[in-house]
């Protein structure tokens, strides 16, 4: 099978509609018959990736690619970028504003959740240059990893 890619726009500060792309990705992967545990891990990551772009990101795009042996999620945004990636990866660290926090976002768990649930997470970012996060999920690893 050739790989299939789907792209979804992510709008900055649109807290309420964030998650729509993840719902569509989840429905597509279910229709394609992927393992339920794998779909759950992908859903956690796509939701967090969407939320990061919404909270911090400026407008961006989420792209999911399904291939025979793996699934990838890539989120690219035109936001302020991350000055210190190691610090941003620490659980509990967040630069989210008060509005986001009151809604239950910005707990500093997004990147750690992504790292815990993807088989591989690559982050490329620099101040003023936006952020690109690539997550890889091996299909044969289905059932392993976080719940």
């Amino acid at each position: 099978m050739a790989s299939v890619s789907k792209r979804y726009p992510v709008r900055a500060r649109d807290f309420l509609h964030a998650g729509e792309a993840s719902i569509q990705i989840q429905a597509f992967l279910k229709a394609m018959g992927l393992d339920a545990g794998l779909i759950r891990r992908i859903a956690i990551c796509s939701y967090e990736a969407e939320m990061n772009a919404v909270i911090h990101g400026g407008d961006g795009e989420l792209e999911m690619t399904l291939a025979d042996e793996w699934v990838t999620l890539e989120v690219r945004d035109a936001g302020p970028g991350i000055a210190d990636i190691e610090l941003a990866m620490q659980p509990g660290y967040s630069t989210a504003d008060e509005t986001a926090r009151e809604m239950g976002f910005g707990a500093g768990m997004g990147l750690p959740n992504m790292k815990a649930n993807a088989d591989e997470l690559r982050l490329e970012s620099a101040p003023g240059r936006g952020t690109r996060a690539l997550m890889v999920f091996r299909r044969e690893a289905a059932g392993g990893g976080a719940p």
Binding site: M103, G104, M109, G110, N113, A116, N117, A146
Partner: peptide, 24 residues
């Protein structure tokens, strides 16, 4: 009430108790 926590840990088929009432 922290959505990332719920997203990561709520078991499938559960009832979710929260004070959040927004669309997300």
């Amino acid at each position: 009430d922290l959505l990332s926590d719920v997203m990561a840990k709520a078991p499938p088929g559960c009832l979710w108790l929260t004070v959040q009432g927004h669309l997300n």
